[in-house]
Design a protein around this nucleic acid. Structure first.
Lengths: 224, 224
DNA sequence: GTTTGGATAAGTGGATACAAAAATCCAGCG
DNA sequence: CGCTGGATTTTTGTATCCACTTATCCAAAC
């Protein structure tokens, strides 16, 4: 089979890439809290470079929606308010629905074996803790969308997953073990197997929207 | 009424913003051709600043998908291949469909008057040339989506519009006057008036996908 | 006539320096 | 006791400089 690891370990050929990778990782794992101010100087010395590449990494993170950049007042970690969280799930639902619709006719028997395996991995990771489970969950979805052959779509979806990742972690830690997750994803696989792409799209949309209200309690307070 | 101008004229409080605005404008209007290399030094002197803010503007443009940034080999204008153009329209169709679904229950009689006015403006601009028409067309769509109250969705859609803008221009110049455009948009308004949000969503999806094949001839050659 | 290699030029990435802006602190005032 | 305003400190934005990578050009070899 051909399940590549979904973990985003990039070899940094430039300092900027290193800074970006470092900060993205830190943000994804919730090492900084929303509203925290990121001071270029500090981070630069932390990873042994000057402020410049860090600044440029900030811009990329801002484009991903992970931080907010305001002229002359630096870089703050961008938590999602309840509205933004909901909006993100709305967007995810249509994008991932589209991905499923596209991917459907491309799925082979082998793909389904892969998906089963990934689902199994996800379940097992569920017992370990949020850190593993969230990654495996992303891996499952990433594999599916990867088959679509739509690079832009894939990147957009991945970016949204990264943005909500900290909230997924908190959520998972809080509820301990999402019993419904297994069933949810099995449903999805069944819909894919049915061959009815309209149905699969709908099921995926519902699957995505299913999670949103569960995370509501962990949203950041609205700003300003 | 409350139709704000859709033109993206930003007051640049920093040099970086100025560089970004300048370059985005230039790229949107097709002043550079896909594949062209953008040299920080040149642009910097062109608008009277050093390379640094220009470099940072590059990153933002890259996030918008307007340029491509490769380590140690600079910044090139990122034309869309046929596949990418199609993909962009696919994504647009679901995002703008979603926007319409959300916006539907918020539309008032006044909104419809505004939309009629905007449609009229668009038609009149059609006689002037692609430059005006494309802006008015964006204005029409922007107004509609603006009512959704979904900032992220609005930004994403706007970004996609910007990315395809040069192609819309070329297309419009080529065919001179899109007779079907009026009918298309009137259709859309009718669907919105019907109050059936599922229908409106579908009509919007079709409206977006309708344009894609028309632009196919103007796609950039695939790279590499 | 085309290919190869290497000198030279051009360009990029990053560090440092400096000016301008914002945040902080503190004293005096109400 | 809180507020105001100004000096001080911190941080940001930009310019400049240097090291290193990549591109260009030209001559010699096949």
């Amino acid at each position: 089979m051909a399940i590549s690891s979904a973990s985003t370990t990039h070899v940094a050929s430039t300092a900027e890439e290193e800074a970006y990778a470092y900060l993205q990782q830190a943000l994804r794992f919730g090492r900084y809290k929303p509203g925290d101010r990121l001071i270029p100087e500090e981070i630069a010395t932390e990873i042994g470079m000057s402020r410049m590449p860090v600044r440029e990494a900030f811009r990329r993170l801002a484009a991903d929606g992970l931080v907010t950049l305001r002229p002359n007042r630096g870089c703050v970690v961008a938590g999602l308010t309840l509205d933004e969280l909901n909006e993100t799930f709305e967007i995810r639902s249509v994008l991932e629905g589209l991905a499923v619709r596209i991917v459907m006719p491309r799925l082979t028997l082998e793909s389904f074996e892969d998906l089963d395996r990934l689902l199994l991995r996800m379940e097992r990771a569920g017992e370990a803790g949020s850190s593993d489970w969230v990654l495996r969950h992303q891996e499952f979805h990433a594999y599916l969308y990867g088959m679509s052959g739509r690079p832009k779509l894939i990147r957009q979806i991945a970016a949204l997953h990264v943005a909500i990742e900290p909230y997924m972690r908190i959520w998972f830690d809080y509820i301990d073990k999402p019993l419904s997750a297994r069933e949810e994803h099995q449903n999805l696989i069944d819909a894919l197997k049915s061959g009815d792409s309209a149905k699969a799209e709908r099921v995926m949309q519902e699957h995505v929207l299913f999670t949103a209200p569960l995370l509501a309690d962990f949203a950041s307070p609205s700003r300003r």
